[in-house]
């Protein structure tokens, strides 16, 4: 009893308040968003009931969940198709983005000459480019991949380029003093230094790759050739099958969230020992 009392007594009121607030924040950061989410779903359900909205306009959450279960085989099959395009697109974006960034880092002239092309690709809406891709590329998978790649590669390219060029001048001098080759400087200095920038770009690219894949399917799916989640949505829209439409939408959303979380985790694991962004804030 005395031990407990003395340990309490060592905390002054201000520190005790701070401790309490921290504990509350820790719990709140989980509970609050969850509670709001549950409330929103409940409200959605109530609005359907109170206004007697027909199922083909706005289905109740329970119905959507039921559809997710009933149509699982169809929907998850489609999800797999979309995810395959997303990941392949992201992979190509990483290879292309990092590869081009390394090329740009070799010479300012290369960067100045080719960066405008990258920007043109980035700023032109993919939906506007797709009809062209549709004409020039025959293979369905290649079409979608190209789309996902165009959307996703830019953040990786621009971030990695920035990272490769942000190396401490003294460290570069140190490498010069020790007679490092271009390749050694790239491998031992520039690439590790660019890692935090690259991972930041990767997090953005992960989400964009999914968007690219879905948009591509939408545009291509209009001609009924695709079997990804986007084509399920279009199909369900035509058939006024709103529950399936919602179910597909939720799956896409969840996929995006999972991709983001996984990439955040990867980033944290790589940077946790040394980079400011991954360090716990000290009081």
């Amino acid at each position: 009893m005395t031990a407990v009392e003395s340990s309490v007594a060592t905390l002054d009121p201000e520190e005790a308040r701070r401790l309490r607030r921290e504990r509350l924040e820790r719990i709140g950061s989980w509970v609050l968003p969850l509670a709001i989410m549950v409330l929103a779903i409940w409200l959605w359900d109530r609005i359907c009931v109170w206004n007697e909205i027909p199922q083909y306009i706005l289905p109740r959450p329970g119905v959507v969940l039921q559809t997710l279960y009933n149509d699982a085989a169809l929907l998850f099959g489609s999800l797999l198709v979309t995810l395959r395009i997303t990941f392949l697109g992201l992979l190509l974006a990483v290879v292309g983005g990092v590869g081009l960034a390394v090329l740009f880092a070799q010479s300012k002239w290369v960067e100045m000459s080719f960066f405008p092309f990258a920007i043109v690709l980035q700023v032109t809406p993919i939906v506007a480019i797709f009809p062209l891709i549709n004409i020039y590329v025959d293979n369905q998978t290649a079409k979608l991949l190209l789309c996902a790649w165009i959307v996703a590669f830019f953040p990786i390219l621009s971030n990695t380029t920035l990272g490769l060029n942000s190396v401490d001048r003294n460290l570069r001098d140190l490498f010069r003093l020790n007679g490092a080759t271009r390749w050694q400087e790239l491998w031992h200095l520039r690439l590790p230094a660019a890692m935090p920038y690259f991972l930041g770009g990767l997090k953005i690219a992960g989400g964009l790759s999914l968007i690219g894949a879905v948009v591509a399917e939408f545009v291509a799916g209009a001609s009924g050739q695709s079997s990804g989640l986007a084509s399920r949505i279009i199909e369900a829209g035509y058939r006024l099958n709103a529950p399936r439409l919602f179910a597909a939408l939720i799956l896409i959303s969840l996929a995006g969230i999972v991709i983001f979380l996984v990439l955040s985790l990867v980033s944290h694991l790589i940077l946790r020992r040394w980079h400011e962004s991954a360090l716990k804030q000290e009081r």
Binding site: N170, L174, F175, N178, H188, R273
Partner: peptide
């Protein structure tokens, strides 16, 4: 050369930092 700042590779361990010139 010893710079004004320590100028170490932040991602590398103390051992790897000292090894660097030999490694190169």
């Amino acid at each position: 050369f010893v710079f004004q700042e320590p100028t170490l590779l932040p991602w590398a361990s103390v051992f790897d930092n000292v090894w660097l010139p030999l490694r190169l």
